[in-house]
Amino acid sequence: MDTATPAVTAALHDGSSVLAESSSVDARRHGELLLPAVDRVLAEAGVKLDAVTGIVVGVGPGPYTGLRVGLVTAATFASALGVPVHGVCTLDGLAYAAGLDTPFVVATDARRKEVYWARYENARTRATDAAVDRPADIAGQVAGMPAVGAGALLYPETFPDNRGPENVSAAALAALAAEKLRAGEEFLPPLPLYLRRPDAQVPKNYKVVTPK
């Protein structure tokens, strides 16, 4: 599952192929949509959650509020079922789905006029760490490369050669994870890639707390 982009996406993979997938795009309702999506995918495949042997979750980068829905859901499932949870960079899922075998860039919408992005050698190999930047500031580093993801579509001046997919799909994420599992590769810890420090703003109706 992945909630790091406006897509709420869940899929079931049996190690060789995707059995079912559900994706909907609604950036404000990750919390409401994810569990029904999981339920729908399992029902379609005729599988109960307790038959699942591992959980794969996109760790972002992505806008925080939605991103946390997928991560806390994955962690809770893993705890309740006693199965491992594998973190995968959301941009890697998009890169995998793009299927390119020459260098390209993946960019998603980080809001505030910025993108989350990384460069790839090919669909399976990330060349740089995920970062958050203003498109104009990275124009030189991505010049001449095909660009995948909603962030690329949003800023055509920086990413003129842009293309889909726009958002990550859990089917691609699961297929990538299945490959990695077979190859015995390492996963990321299931912790969010925020890439930004929290805005330290206390709301007006604050609750005062004890200092150290």
Binding site: T65, A200, Q201, V202, Y206, V209
Partner: peptide, 14 residues
Amino acid sequence: HARFGGVVPEIASR
């Protein structure tokens, strides 16, 4: 939250 004198929502959520 202490050094901010109140609860910072994003810090609390994290």
